[in-house]
Amino acid sequence: MRSCKQISFLVSESQDRKLSFREWLSVKVHLQMCKACEQMARQIKLLRVTSTKYMSSEDHKSNRPKDHLSKEASDRIRKRLFCVSEKDKNK
């Protein structure tokens, strides 16, 4: 019987790789009996969703377009590319 500490590591692992059948089974059985670990597993899964949510919420105040580069940004990049290629030529 694996401890809560071992189960918590396997739950973390399950976010990154497919557990072996034995690992998966021991997690499943443990979570059914242990309320604390069941909550931990929910929390770990929530961290992934929250990360995505957090990144998209950071910039909500900006009025820049989200689906294409703004005119100002493209002009700036175009100028920069021009400068770099000029420098390149003069080398």
């Binding site: 820049r64 294409h68 580069l69 940004a73 920069r80 590319l81």
Partner: peptide, 28 residues
């Protein structure tokens, strides 16, 4: 490709100014 690179960067970074900078650095 500017717009699609921008959208990709924005998805990863969440901040429009950072995403613009990344597109510029990439093209340079």
């Amino acid at each position: 490709y500017g717009d699609s690179l921008y959208r990709y960067a924005l998805r990863k970074l969440g901040k429009t100014t950072d995403a613009e900078d990344m597109v510029q650095e990439t093209l340079v």
